[in-house]
Computed example of a mutant assay.
Amino acid sequence: MKTITAAFALAAPLALVGTAAPSTASAPAESITGDWKLADRRSVVRIYRCGDAMCGKIQRILVAQPAGGARDTKNPDASKRDRKLVGLTVFWNLKPSGNAYKGKGYNPDDGRYFNAKFDRKGSQLRLKGCVSIICRTQMLTRA
């Protein structure tokens, strides 16, 4: 059962276009704490302070779950496949970097780990997840 958006899957490459220019000054990263609904509106992730960084865990699943709750069945580590998804840490070591937060993420839909970058866009939170040079972006909204 898919409970986290396939956007985390990072399966389709995105063109990387940009220019390198020196930054004069950037505003500090806007707070990303709180509960955020994923783009597919199937689950809510809570972003919170953990030590000197930010972390994120699955707070709620908004779709029907199997008896006993959805599990981390796609985890590459077989010993972790019976973990419940609700309460599972899926983002960690998110630290300010310019006007964003960068750290690590995990997608229980496919068992992949990725580099995560969060930044606020008004009332939304943009998540960009990358495995090597393959990246996907999705917008989260306040739950």
Rank of each mutant, 00 (worst) to 15 (best):
I58P: 01
A25L: 09
R42C: 14
Y106Q: 00
Q124D: 13
K2T: 14
G18K: 08
P22I: 13
S123K: 15
P13I: 11
I133H: 06
N93G: 01
L10Q: 05
F118M: 15
A64T: 11
A100M: 15
R49V: 07
L14N: 10
S79C: 05
A70K: 01
F91G: 02
Y48K: 14
R49L: 00
K121F: 06
P22V: 15
K128I: 03
L127N: 04
G18Y: 07
Q138D: 10
K57D: 15
L127P: 02
A11Y: 09
G111T: 03
N107T: 03
P96A: 14
A143C: 01
N99P: 02
I133A: 11
V131G: 12
E30Y: 00
S31T: 12
P108S: 09
A6N: 07
Y106A: 00
T24I: 11
K121D: 11
P28N: 01
P108C: 09
R136M: 14
S132E: 00
I133N: 06
R81K: 12
A21G: 01
I61Y: 05
P96R: 07
L16M: 11
R41I: 01
I32A: 10
L140T: 08
A25K: 09
G51P: 01
S132Y: 03
V44S: 00
G56Y: 04
R142A: 13
L88P: 05
A15K: 09
A67K: 07
K104E: 10
F114S: 04
Q59M: 12
R83D: 03
P13T: 12
P22S: 15
N115C: 00
V86D: 10
S31F: 01
L127M: 13
M54G: 02
K95E: 11
D72P: 02
V17Q: 13
I61F: 04
A27C: 02
G122E: 03
T137Q: 10
N93D: 06
I61P: 04
P66D: 14
A9R: 15
G122Y: 02
P22W: 09
S132I: 05
P66G: 11
T73V: 04
L62E: 08
V63Q: 05
L140K: 08
K104V: 01
N107P: 00
S43F: 05
M139H: 04
L140P: 09
R120C: 13
Q59W: 10
R46T: 15
L125V: 14
A27Y: 00
P28E: 04
A64N: 08
P108Y: 06
L140M: 15
T137V: 12
P13H: 12
A143M: 03
R126M: 13
W36S: 08
P22A: 15
Y106H: 02
